[in-house]
Design a protein around this nucleic acid. Structure first.
Lengths: 346, 346
DNA sequence: CGATTGCATGCATACGATTGCATAAAAATT
DNA sequence: AATTTTTATGCAATCGTATGCATGCAATCG
């Protein structure tokens, strides 16, 4: 360990040092190290000299300098709603693993579902160009995203289907269909008629879609919905708890509760048990996302699968196919089929 | 929205463009925008011209170029074991929030508790210098971390107490004391004598410390430990499940199980319930970390609190105090007192 | 009124790596 | 043997911003 007597400035080792030690020019070192550009041949002899100098000095190329010159940063940025939500962190993990594989670093930002934060993220991207951006639920408009693309040249991939842009690949679950099916299943197979829904703010597009699917299923089966059965949470466990308390304390509590995501469903489950309601005998609960926790709690949670890790890797793979030029041409829009996983809570 | 007819190169707007439009030199623009350096005065008049040109063009400074020149990247990197573990993701979130506040971006990498991955992270840091690094449990040696500091000039802050370096601030819980106290509490207040421990590989320093604390508590109370009561998990829910199955199927199952972290404790809890053991009547369970889930499951989990969000913000605050020169001098080593939270599982 | 000071700005270089172009030496061709 | 081609290397400009130094001009001073 070097001396460590107080905070010292960094002592960077540059290509020039390597060049000097190897007795060649700095550009030769560069060529040896980025062998990919085969346009220029290098003699085995000098290559060896350079490599041994690199070894000897423990040289590492400076990615900041390289980024500036190549106009490529070898970083991707991810915008998610909240890393504390396990649905997002498994997506994140999937993205990180793929990025790692391609030698990329990952910047992560949280929006907390707030438009202002998403715009803040865009501004950050304008300042610090990255090669790729993965966006997960957002309120951004196509125009705003397009500006980032135009200005930074970044490749963008998104989760969700409500944006249509010729340069943006998207991946989406058919969550409205899945929600519709789940509600009908509760009605037709479980003989429920009084079904409540815990939604999220409707400014969040997938939330709106799922809510509409619930309404459609109820309507198509000729069921009426009491006003108090429609609750609005905020994506969180606490939101699920608060709304469930309201539901179970109302004059006409529902027989079944469908939540827009698992966190809220888990909060609801937890409140039901604490209030001594039996699940599923007294009230059934259905979630959405299939986060790891859903299968762990007792009674385990019936939910709609999203395969979140796969979503992350999938999104990242689509992104890197573009970045590395493996794929070109018009944007691709993939849909993942979702399905209900029946567990103990129904 | 601009034309969008196929993938186009980025059309960056640089300081030169701004300078040109404002009719001043590029260096003047730079001076106006980084007003902090008051060493050089700028007339109100030109400042206005520049700012309006910036506005008009929608100019954003390029952080890559700025980083290269200033030798400061305005990024911090975080190495955690696994972002899927909720203990870490709340730390991460705390760090992100603080970083955001200081205008910093955050790079996140997972080590999965593997030494090789941690070394990989160090190499990445040598290539892409960042201003600060936050390390959460690791196997890295002081020498390895020191090399990164020397070479990159980064400021480092860590969670844990087993590294002593004059430039590294650390934050640590007194987890061995807390574990010791918890085990004695099980013995003295709950009258348990047969207590098992689910540890993690001992190459992980905090894991070793906690395990030793368990041994010490048992010894100090004159209790004997059966070999099969000591199980080794891998930090995960599955690890907890596997080891708990072994424990409950053994000829002499324990009355209480202490796990090195909450995930394993939750796995254990889940297996106990599935095997129809009553918790806490037939077997008591204690975890470590107090992840959000711990209070959510039923029976809720008795655990040792770590205040994980606070840990993240705390670590980040210590880091930025150094980065921004608010604090200098010898490294600080802070300890957070931990304590048992009694819930339903004991 | 000439000399000194202070204010405001531009010029030019640096940060560290990449790459088009020029060039020198060696090999191949006629 | 002269010319062309190939191989291997160096020179110098570039990416976009920051900053030491020089400079021009106005204000102040003796």
């Amino acid at each position: 360990m070097s001396k460590m007597n107080g905070r010292t400035k960094a002592t960077p080792i540059t290509m020039r040092d390597v060049a000097h030690l190897a007795g060649v020019s700095q550009s030769t070192v560069s060529r040896v190290l980025s062998k990919s550009l085969s346009s220029v041949p290098i003699s085995k002899d000098t290559a060896d000299k350079v490599l041994s100098a690199v070894e000897q000095l423990g040289y590492y190329p400076n990615l900041t300098a390289s980024s500036l010159r190549k106009q490529r940063t070898f970083m991707v940025a991810v915008l998610i709603a909240d890393i504390s939500n396990s649905f997002y962190h498994s997506i994140t993990r999937g993205i990180q693993d793929v990025a790692d594989q391609y030698g990329y670093d990952v910047l992560i930002a949280n929006s907390d579902h707030l438009y202002e934060n998403e715009k803040h993220f865009c501004r950050a991207m304008m300042r610090r160009p990255v090669d790729g951006i993965i966006l997960v639920p957002y309120h951004l408009t196509v125009e705003e995203i397009d500006e980032v693309i135009q200005r930074t040249g970044a490749t963008v991939t998104m989760l969700g289907s409500h944006i249509n842009h010729p340069l943006i690949d998207t991946l989406a679950g058919d969550d409205d269909q899945a929600t519709y099916d789940a509600v009908r299943w509760l009605i037709e197979n479980k003989q429920h008629t009084d079904i409540a829904y815990i939604r999220v703010p409707l400014s969040y597009p997938p939330g709106l879609r799922r809510f509409n699917a619930y309404l459609a299923a109820m309507r198509d089966c000729g069921l009426t919905i009491r006003d108090e059965w429609i609750q609005e949470g905020d994506f969180s466990i606490e939101g699920g708890q608060r709304t469930m308390r309201a539901l179970l304390s109302s004059p006409h509590p529902p027989q079944a509760v469908v939540a827009c995501n698992d966190l809220m469903a888990l909060g609801a489950l937890n409140v039901a048990l604490d209030m001594k309601w039996r699940v599923p005998e007294d009230v059934a609960i259905v979630g959405f996302d299939d986060i790891p926790l859903a299968s762990l709690v007792r009674p385990s949670l019936t939910t709609i699968t999203q395969l979140s890790t796969d979503i992350g890797t999938q999104l990242a793979e689509m992104l890197f196919e573009r970045i590395n030029g493996v794929v070109s041409g018009p944007s691709r829009h993939w849909t993942i089929p979702l399905h209900l996983i029946e567990r103990q809570s129904t």
